[in-house]
Computed example of a mutant assay.
Amino acid sequence: MFFENVVKVGGHLGHTTRTWHPKMAPYIFDNRDGVHVLDMVQTEIYLNQVKQFLSRAKQQGSTVLFVGTKPQASNAIELAAKSCNAFYINQRWLGGLLTNWSTLRRSIALLNRMDVIKDKGILETLPKKLKSSFYREHARLDKYLGGIKSMRSIPDVVIIVGQDKENIALNECKKLGIRTITLLDTNSNPELADLFIPMNDDSMKAIRSVLQQLSFELAKA
């Protein structure tokens, strides 16, 4: 039933045959009107493998970060992470977020201090110009770091939607030895991911459905 629903929203449709990555060939079922169709039997197998991995990781106390900044994934990333108390980046990946964690951590600490200032009503005592400047800076930090403001160290596992767009995040994970899970469309390279799920990574509904499966696994573990 789950994969029937994913197919209904185009989760099985890849990119055109002109823009595919040859190493995705083993996961492609057919070519219809110049568009590759993914093998959903394999998609289900790989999804189950990922769910088993996440269940074990969670039981071992691993922390998980969801990453997906393209418009089709942004909302689903936030919802999935919040539903299982994980962390997320859904607006923009700041270069060095993981490899230069000590610096980014200072920005996160600033955001948390600004939250405290807001909550205590201290802003009401400030001049209008200073208050406006504070709100602008707080909004900027919260937009990019709000999903990780309680993250105390680099994550153990990173779930990525949009391999090409999130290549900086992927490279940082590889450099640090962080395990990655990627939703892989037909234009992606499966060799760059530790674990992956072959599927359309542009359909908002398909992304949401699969991320719900992963977040549910994390929440119940």
Results as ranks from 00 to 15, higher is better:
221 A>R: 04
183 L>M: 14
158 V>T: 13
42 Q>K: 15
193 A>F: 10
92 R>I: 06
175 K>I: 13
164 D>G: 04
96 G>S: 08
165 K>N: 14
123 L>I: 10
43 T>D: 06
52 Q>R: 12
163 Q>V: 07
74 S>R: 12
70 K>V: 02
51 K>R: 12
207 I>V: 14
118 K>W: 07
50 V>F: 01
12 H>A: 09
186 T>M: 00
132 S>Y: 03
139 A>W: 00
131 K>D: 05
92 R>G: 01
70 K>G: 01
201 D>G: 02
37 V>D: 01
62 S>R: 11
174 K>A: 14
170 L>S: 05
27 Y>N: 09
219 A>S: 14
160 I>P: 00
44 E>Q: 14
39 D>N: 15
212 Q>S: 13
74 S>A: 14
176 L>V: 03
2 F>K: 15
140 R>G: 01
194 D>F: 07
104 L>A: 02
107 S>F: 01
104 L>Y: 03
160 I>L: 13
52 Q>W: 02
189 N>D: 15
209 S>N: 11
93 W>R: 00
112 N>M: 06
162 G>Y: 06
54 L>V: 07
162 G>L: 10
93 W>L: 00
174 K>W: 06
66 F>K: 00
33 D>E: 07
121 G>C: 09
142 D>P: 00
58 K>T: 12
180 T>E: 03
56 R>M: 10
109 A>P: 00
128 K>E: 15
128 K>H: 15
123 L>S: 07
200 N>D: 07
187 N>T: 00
134 F>S: 10
20 W>G: 12
166 E>D: 13
141 L>R: 03
44 E>G: 05
34 G>N: 02
82 K>S: 08
120 K>I: 05
26 P>G: 12
85 N>A: 13
153 S>G: 07
117 I>Q: 11
94 L>C: 01
147 G>D: 01
69 T>V: 11
141 L>P: 07
68 G>I: 05
79 L>V: 13
140 R>E: 10
92 R>A: 10
205 K>M: 15
159 I>Q: 04
189 N>Q: 02
13 L>A: 11
170 L>Q: 09
207 I>H: 07
56 R>T: 12
172 E>T: 10
63 T>G: 08
7 V>M: 13
20 W>D: 03
129 K>M: 09
199 M>I: 14
42 Q>V: 12
188 S>F: 04
214 L>P: 08
215 S>W: 11
119 D>C: 09
200 N>Q: 09
2 F>P: 06
20 W>L: 03
58 K>E: 08
27 Y>H: 13
136 R>M: 06
140 R>F: 11
188 S>P: 01
37 V>R: 09
64 V>R: 02
122 I>R: 14
194 D>P: 05
38 L>G: 01
175 K>R: 15
105 R>P: 00
22 P>C: 04
22 P>Q: 09
204 M>V: 10
68 G>D: 04
53 F>K: 02
126 L>I: 13
218 L>W: 10
200 N>A: 09
218 L>P: 04
123 L>T: 08
82 K>Y: 02
140 R>S: 10
206 A>G: 13
146 G>H: 06
87 F>S: 09
154 I>A: 06
179 R>A: 04
50 V>P: 03
185 D>P: 05
68 G>K: 01
121 G>M: 08
15 H>N: 03
135 Y>V: 09
41 V>F: 08
163 Q>Y: 06
32 R>D: 04
134 F>W: 10
